[in-house]
Design a protein around this nucleic acid. Sequence first.
DNA 1: CTCGTTACTGACCCATGAGTCAGCAACTAC
DNA 2: GTAGTTGCTGACTCATGGGTCAGTAACGAG
Lengths: 205, 205
Amino acid sequence: MNQPRYQRRKEDRPEEITAAALEAFAKNGYAATRVDEVAKRAGVSKGLLYLYFKTKEELFKSVVRSFVMPRIDTLIKIIETSDMSSEKFLRGPFLDFARQVPGSPISVIVRLMVAEGPKHPDLVQFYWDNVVSHGLGAINELLWHGVQSGEFQRSTVSEQPALFVMPVIFSVIFNLLFSKQPIDTDRLIETQIDLLISHLKGHTT
Amino acid sequence: MNQPRYQRRKEDRPEEITAAALEAFAKNGYAATRVDEVAKRAGVSKGLLYLYFKTKEELFKSVVRSFVMPRIDTLIKIIETSDMSSEKFLRGPFLDFARQVPGSPISVIVRLMVAEGPKHPDLVQFYWDNVVSHGLGAINELLWHGVQSGEFQRSTVSEQPALFVMPVIFSVIFNLLFSKQPIDTDRLIETQIDLLISHLKGHTT
DNA sequence: CTCGTTACTGACCCATGAGTCAGCAACTAC
DNA sequence: GTAGTTGCTGACTCATGGGTCAGTAACGAG
């Protein structure tokens, strides 16, 4: 008859709260998100949230840890284990990954990092160590491999992995800001990859 | 003997306050900047600030107006009045402009927009109307001109002005976050422009 | 059905900072 | 000088929201 007003589910709470926080941050950004709102989304009181996360900042850290690293690690695994040509990898798995980032939680994290990063140097360091350096390093290695095997020519392009990441980050930020005039993310990413590969294959100076 | 505690300098106040606001925003971001601090930096009381700017948001708009719009407008003027070839313009004035952005107040504004835009849709709209649409429009026109005159081939590149802006925005954000491992901004921008022009001049598919 | 443990609630506290306003003092005209 | 104007001050109000804690009720053990 009388439904219990709540259930005790200690195990699941942190995960659920973290997911709710991602939603809220996605919608409003970090500073503008009320802890009350996160709690509400998680179907929980504010007090309970503070039992699991000491501060709002802890909550933020938890979101970063939960939603970014697994994705990047997966991609790096593919680079390391597969033996396809560099071009095949760039046009295949890498392009697929790049195209799906703008619609994934990673895009939210990117924005949060840009917004709150300067106030949380330790978080930025963590993000660099576990995500950025790995990602850029992997691309670097891939390009180096291409050059070594004679598939790509050595040039200034083959030494700047950022050229490959650029359109992804740019698209994420552009569309988060100007959602009213969205950019064609897929097209931008594809064009850039095409340009880069064209160059690396020696079709131009 | 008795120095006056302040001088009445109605003419200069708005400009000085705007400059102070830019400094404060650069240091702390929009939300984290206290109006009190801006006033202090400007050597003025908070009350006076509110005589010249109705709200904190007005203050922000004033910063954009003073430090961003003139730069963009100057660049557009050059496009419209000069009759140099599209390539010359891209390799000359445009490249110069792009290279100096990361060290200019514009980079501060970009960061602010990314970080706090979602909470202030009207600010985003203001920025779009007065800066982004003008800038992208100008590049579009330039590319179209190049195509019309036969200087450039028509392609997917000539229809995506964002390709030219991308490295600038990316550099600003990257270096803001990871100032410990800064990226070579000039090199990135130059490489991208080279790639794009190479393509547009028909050296590749 | 107890009774003890503890996951959970939500009303509360209080630091913060945007925005206000009554009065003061710098300047001007005479 | 002195009276009028107005640029300017800074103490104030008040909404907001992060963080707390005394109490409540779900659940398990006996």
